[in-house]
């Protein structure tokens, strides 16, 4: 396994870089989109909340691979030329945004209804109340599940291997084919994924425990 790591260090590191980059872009993107849809879901306007709900339910129930492949093979033919990395990252963003929307929605709704009423009754607007009163409280509740979503994101970014997205898994497949040493290559790739995900996962557990006590 060490052989594989040493001999293919540049390729593996580049793969790790693409994996991280894709995950981070998708994290930021899906946080924005996800929060937007969460707000739509809890909106008092019926149609807005219906649209929010449909988006979340549809995206959540379709495999990431199907979404990604659609962006990889259909979008370039009719809409815009995008490469595998971009298609994969967009796929990841959209897929994850539905889960983040659910997490954020649950977080906001778990903050007592009275809080919103109280804030409104002291003269705050809906958005002021949301930003100054509800979000800060929801934040603590939402952080641990969001952290888990990020771990999922890193793992799910292996979808880039399907669309030549230069990520860790893609490099792993190429190395396995070049060296004919499948076993050790995937072992090495596994260790590299764990280096990304394990500390995150322990950190999230620590946060969960700490905040549960507080």
């Amino acid at each position: 396994m060490l052989n594989i790591l040493v001999n293919n260090f540049p390729e593996l590191m580049s793969g790790l870089g693409y994996t991280l980059m894709s995950s981070l872009i998708a994290l930021v993107g899906s946080l924005i989109i996800g929060t937007a849809f969460a707000l739509m879901e809890i909106s008092t306007h019926r149609w807005v909340s219906v649209i929010g709900n449909i988006y979340v339910e549809v995206v959540r129930n379709i495999p990431l691979l199907v979404i990604t492949m659609a962006f990889y093979v259909i979008v370039p033919q009719y809409i815009a030329q995008i490469d595998g990395f971009t298609a994969g990252t967009i796929g990841l963003t959209i897929y994850t945004s539905a889960f983040i929307a659910e997490t954020v929605r649950a977080g906001i709704q778990s903050v007592a209804v009275g809080q919103m009423e109280g804030a409104r009754s002291v003269g705050m607007t809906y958005s002021q109340a949301m930003i100054q009163i509800i979000f800060p409280q929801a934040f603590k509740i939402v952080i641990p599940p969001l952290g888990n979503q990020f771990i999922n994101l890193v793992k799910n970014s292996s979808i880039l291997a399907f669309v030549a997205g230069f990520d860790l898994m893609y490099q792993g497949k190429i190395i396995a084919n070049a060296t004919f040493n499948t076993f050790d290559t995937y072992l090495a790739v596994g260790v590299l994924y764990l280096i990304l995900t394990m500390p995150l996962s322990y950190f999230m557990r620590y946060l969960e425990k700490k905040w549960a006590v507080a």
């Binding site: 990889y72 093979v73 259909i74 370039p76 033919q77 030329q81 490469d83 595998g84 399907f162 669309v163 030549a164 893609y170 190429i174």
Partner: peptide
């Protein structure tokens, strides 16, 4: 060089202008 998993995907990618 872009490397895909199989020929069906490779041909599909060509048609998609990848």
């Amino acid at each position: 060089v872009l490397q895909l998993s199989d020929y069906a995907q490779a041909f599909t990618a060509l048609k998609s202008g990848q």
